[in-house]
């Protein structure tokens, strides 16, 4: 395999792992717990910015970019800091918006939050370097490992894969546990769950924070790979790419999330990124204006969501009905006839 092809494939693989992580986090919030988080990408972004500023080193006068809280923490710390920062932000946002609002107001608040976060990051230039964003984020252990770039890329893919596998096991641990059942009960009928003594607000907050931490970590893994991050990378429609992945893959199904991430952000968006900008069609030379493919991609994402909601709202891999034996049945079986 040529080096270029290897670069391409390893990059695609890393993107896939990161997208799977992101989709798993949102699926936990949206699919399993029924929390509407249209600002999910903000938590990814906060994780990415945090990982960037704690590994970029202290800011200095004359630096080409300016940011708050520069530090050069060693390898695993930036990722942990990213998870923590997104988790804390999730807690704050959750405390404000998840309390007693109707779900459509929550959706609205989240959407507005996403817009405002972009606006703030763009305009407050001292915060994370404004519209230009941060660049030259060091790759973790690049110097220590001393590998050639291509081999480093494969190592990074393994590392991202490892984190994704851990995330998958963690999320599956939640969804298969009694907590997962409680969450689904809350999603399907929150009043009934509350009547059975479940603390709905606390559960929502918990899952909101857990999902936020996952989002933050995925952002950190992403920024440490591509080494740059700017407001243009996390505009509010990006959340809908994740959401589309969940709707296509299958809401509340972890394997569905994996397949959705493979199909929508990776298969659909990354694969079309390399469409030719000019080609011959029926003997005529056609030149696409820059941005046309992007625009059509977003149209396609919108259509994909509509088509799936219409024809297959449960997604490719529907949620599996829970297998459980009611206690009454166990008790009566134990007693015999």
């Amino acid at each position: 395999m040529s080096d270029a092809m290897q670069f391409y494939l390893s990059t695609l693989l890393i993107y896939l792992f990161i997208d799977v992580m992101g989709v798993l986090g949102l699926n936990l919030q949206f699919g399993v717990a029924g929390i509407i988080n249209f600002a999910y990408i903000v938590f990814v972004a906060v994780g990415a910015y945090t990982a960037a500023v704690v590994s970029l080193g202290p800011d200095f006068p004359g630096n080409f970019q300016h940011y708050l809280f520069g530090a050069s923490w060693p390898f695993p710390l930036p990722i942990l800091a990213a998870g923590a920062a997104s988790g804390v932000l999730s807690l704050v946002v959750g405390l404000i918006s998840l309390r007693r609002l109707r779900s459509d107001y929550q959706a609205m608040v989240m959407l507005v939050l996403s817009l405002i976060a972009t606006l703030t990051a763009t305009n407050a230039t001292g915060l994370v370097n404004g519209p230009a964003g941060l660049a030259n984020v060091p790759q973790p252990l690049f110097d220590q490992l001393g590998l050639p770039p291509l081999e480093y890329q494969w190592v990074y893919a393994i590392w991202a894969g490892l984190l994704t596998a851990l995330t998958f096991l963690f999320v599956r641990g939640i969804t298969n546990s009694p907590l997962g059942r409680t969450l689904r009960a809350m999603r399907d009928n929150d009043r009934a769950a509350a009547a059975l003594g479940k603390n709905i607000t606390a559960l929502r907050l918990l899952i909101f924070v857990v999902g936020g931490v996952i989002a933050g970590i995925s952002g950190a893994v992403f920024v440490e790979f591509i080494q740059a991050w700017s407001p243009g990378s996390w505009l509010y429609p990006e959340t809908f790419v994740f959401l589309a992945a969940i709707i296509v893959g299958g809401s509340a199904n972890n394997w569905g999330a994996v397949v959705g991430a493979l199909l929508v952000p990776v298969g659909f968006l990354e694969a079309t990124r390399f469409l030719p900008q000019d080609f011959n069609l029926f003997g005529r030379h056609v030149v696409l204006f820059s941005g046309l493919v992007d625009a059509l991609q977003w149209v396609a994402v919108g259509l994909l969501i509509l088509v799936f909601l219409w024809f297959r709202p449960q997604g490719l891999f529907p949620e599996r009905p829970g297998r459980f034996t009611p206690r009454a049945a166990i008790a009566s079986a134990g007693k015999g006839e």
Partner: peptide, 9 residues
């Protein structure tokens, strides 16, 4: 979600 999909479109 449907209205947002329409918005994107």
């Amino acid at each position: 979600i449907v209205t947002i999909a329409m918005s994107l479109i």
